[in-house]
Amino acid sequence: MPHVLTLIAPPGALAPAHLNAARAALTALGADCDAAEWLAEGEAADLPFTALAAEQAIAAVRGALGDGALDLIAQPRAGRRKKLLLADMDSTIVTTETLDEIAAFAGLKEKIAEITARSMNGELDFRQALTERVGMLKGLDASALEETWKATELMPGARELVATMRHHGARTALVSGGFTFFTGRVAELVGFHEHHANTLLLDGGKLTGAVGQPILDRDAKLATLKRLAAAHGLALSEAATIGDGANDLAMIQAAGLGVAYRAKPSVAAAARHRIEHGDLRGLLFAQGYKASEFVAG
Rank of each mutant, 00 (worst) to 15 (best):
141 D>K: 06
142 A>D: 12
142 A>C: 12
142 A>I: 11
142 A>F: 04
142 A>H: 09
143 S>P: 00
143 S>C: 10
145 L>W: 09
145 L>E: 11
146 E>Y: 09
147 E>A: 14
148 T>W: 01
149 W>Y: 14
149 W>E: 11
150 K>T: 14
151 A>C: 11
153 E>G: 00
154 L>P: 05
155 M>N: 11
155 M>Q: 14
156 P>Q: 03
156 P>L: 08
157 G>L: 05
158 A>T: 05
158 A>N: 12
158 A>C: 07
158 A>W: 02
159 R>L: 08
159 R>S: 09
159 R>K: 14
159 R>Y: 00
160 E>I: 03
162 V>P: 02
163 A>V: 01
164 T>V: 06
165 M>C: 13
165 M>W: 12
165 M>R: 15
165 M>S: 05
166 R>Y: 02
167 H>S: 13
167 H>G: 04
167 H>W: 07
169 G>W: 13
170 A>K: 09
170 A>N: 07
171 R>V: 15
171 R>D: 00
171 R>S: 03
172 T>W: 00
172 T>N: 00
173 A>P: 01
173 A>E: 05
173 A>Q: 04
173 A>H: 11
174 L>N: 03
174 L>S: 03
174 L>C: 02
175 V>W: 04
176 S>F: 03
176 S>W: 07
177 G>L: 04
177 G>H: 07
178 G>I: 07
179 F>P: 04
179 F>C: 10
180 T>S: 15
180 T>W: 04
181 F>P: 03
181 F>M: 10
181 F>E: 08
182 F>V: 11
182 F>C: 10
183 T>D: 15
184 G>P: 00
184 G>W: 10
185 R>F: 10
186 V>N: 10
188 E>G: 15
188 E>N: 14
189 L>G: 02
190 V>A: 14
191 G>F: 04
191 G>T: 06
191 G>I: 06
192 F>Q: 04
192 F>A: 05
192 F>N: 02
192 F>K: 05
192 F>I: 10
194 E>Q: 12
194 E>I: 08
194 E>V: 14
195 H>N: 15
196 H>Q: 10
196 H>A: 01
196 H>D: 00
197 A>Q: 07
198 N>W: 03
199 T>Q: 14
199 T>E: 15
200 L>I: 12
201 L>Q: 14
201 L>H: 12
202 L>D: 07
203 D>I: 01
204 G>N: 08
204 G>P: 07
204 G>E: 12
205 G>R: 11
205 G>W: 09
205 G>I: 13
205 G>K: 06
205 G>Y: 11
206 K>L: 05
209 G>L: 08
209 G>R: 02
209 G>I: 08
210 A>I: 02
211 V>K: 06
212 G>C: 07
212 G>Q: 08
212 G>L: 02
214 P>W: 08
214 P>F: 08
